[in-house]
Design a binder for these strands. Structure first.
Lengths: 310, 310
DNA sequence: GAGAACGATTGACCTAGTACACTGGGCCGG
DNA sequence: CCGGCCCAGTGTACTAGGTCAATCGTTCTC
């Protein structure tokens, strides 16, 4: 019989150990939680924590944060299927926001924005879905921050090339490349409202600076910057839509393509769209060319404005 | 006692009529189904059908396809609280595709595309969710067809005004108005790929025709048409995003606005975006002006191309 | 030694899309 | 007259996805 001088936590440890060895608690069973111990034996949480730690040191129980403590199987006998799922050469360091965003971006780049579900993202990071909510407020904000992260990727050259035209071409092409790499980007944020996406604001600021000294009002400069950004969007969205359509049909891709082509053929062959029928495929599939065309038209139009202000 | 020479369906009709008049079957009660009649009286389905038709002709019962047949109320006496939920001055004719699309569009116009769920749409039409699948293959196609329907709304003037510039301005502004009315439109379809949306193809065809006789290659004309359509999209999307953001926060709108403004203020006040900080709100909120600006720039640039081909 | 704060985790709830099977009336060939 | 086939509509139910609430072990602070 232990003396009453013995520390309380030792007494409790001995008691629980006895129950385990008696088979009263079997391997795999849930231990009482720290709080339950504290209440049942009338001790503080810290004491119960100590009890837990001692039992764990003795190898009698195994603890998994957030999931409780279970009686471990006796040594020499191994568990059948390890619950660990993922690779992780990385030592599973504490999740951080940046890592979450980069992973989400990686998924979206390859499989589209729709593939980025909280569950999917969590699985990729080898955590529970709810863990993500420590780092982002919700799905919506996740997407916004993904956009912010992506926009922060490229370095904006600090003086930039000479002349407004070269500068505007540079920023527009840079955004075009950005959207090509991250096809989900145009669908994620409103380009016209760069507010609340700091790295997008940086782009707008850069463009506004490029328009310095042309004698334009601030309103015009702002309109020009927004319009320039806007040129990229629809073209990139088209590209995204196409890729997505191809992916989501999966195995039946060929079949889908066939039916689409057939349907298109029917409509075009119907005689209702004679002009449309003559030009197809070649132009529409060259989205790079389309973007350059619209950029050139716009910049020429803007040049006219600069040279001959109203 | 009817003679056995009398046709069986007449005998059954008389029997049922008697039960109705006796109050055994009351107004609103479900009639036995055709198959039940066929089985109970040991006759063929067609015979039972005839019974049904006769009763309906006599005004004793009312039939609703797919929902069974009920005893109708005697004339002059109207139902107290109709189980009908919705307005429907229309006599709830058999659901047709057009009606489905118009209703979906109505929902999307007011509450955004997200509000258009199969369940919501079905409820609005007072049918079960699955009934919709008789008319549209699925959610995705529903949206596509909504777009098609919406694009078909405006009449495209058949010769149109004189001169390419007037024509292009007309079609661009028409699409802009269309998108203002149906804010969900730009998010629903890829403008660059008008394939499979016939009424969108009509717009493109119209635009291509407007570019006739300018000595441009077909590729250039196609690019021009697509670019013109594309001008509308990002601006309209911004408008949609804004409206949506306001709606989805609901009651906490003021709170949300406040926090947004505060956050914007912090970023703008941080000194990182000095130019952006000077021009705000006034320009960005005038989306009509922004659209007109970008259209003017583009058309001027295009004019240069027409006058001086490369 | 006690308790608050924290990050992680599970379970449960709600919404949404839609496959499946069934019922009901209409119609056609025997 | 009969049997069977077809289409429209419906109810059930399964799955996926976003998110709240409760709970767990740990740590930091009095």
């Amino acid at each position: 019989m232990p003396s009453s001088k013995e520390p309380p936590y030792r007494r409790i440890v001995a008691e629980i150990r006895a129950r385990i060895q008696a088979g009263d608690l079997r391997p795999g069973d849930r231990m009482p939680s720290i709080r339950q111990i504290a209440q049942r034996w009338g001790v503080a949480v810290a004491t119960a924590t100590r009890v837990m730690a001692t039992l764990r040191d003795e190898g009698l129980v195994e603890t998994k944060v957030g999931a409780g403590t279970v009686i471990s199987t006796p040594a020499g006998q191994k568990r059948p299927a390890a619950p660990r799922r993922r690779q992780d050469a990385a030592p599973k360091q504490a999740l951080d926001r940046k890592q979450v965003l980069r992973t989400a971006i990686a998924i979206a780049d390859v499989e589209g924005l729709d593939a980025v579900s909280m569950r999917r993202l969590a699985a990729e990071l080898d955590v529970g879905p709810m863990s993500l909510y420590r780092h982002v407020a919700g799905k919506h904000e996740l997407v916004t921050q993904m956009a912010d992260e992506a926009f922060g990727e490229p370095e904006l050259p600090v003086p930039g090339p000479d002349g407004w035209r070269a500068k505007l071409e540079l920023i527009a092409r840079l955004q075009w490349r950005l959207c090509r790499r991250h096809l989900w980007l145009p669908g994620a944020v409103s380009f016209i409202r760069p507010l609340f996406v700091p790295s997008m604001m940086a782009h707008t600021e850069w463009t506004l600076r490029a328009l310095d000294g042309l004698g334009l009002t601030m309103s015009t400069r702002m309109r020009e910057a927004l319009t320039l950004h806007a040129l990229v969007i629809p073209v990139a969205q088209s590209m995204a839509a196409e890729v997505e359509a191809e992916q989501e049909t999966g195995v039946t891709l060929d079949q889908w393509r066939l039916s689409q082509r057939k349907r298109a053929g029917e409509l075009l062959g119907s005689g209702r769209f004679p002009l449309l029928a003559t030009a197809q495929e070649d132009v529409v599939s060259d989205l790079d060319g389309l973007f350059e065309y619209s950029l050139a038209r716009h910049l020429n139009g803007f040049a006219a404005l600069v040279e001959d202000p109203p």
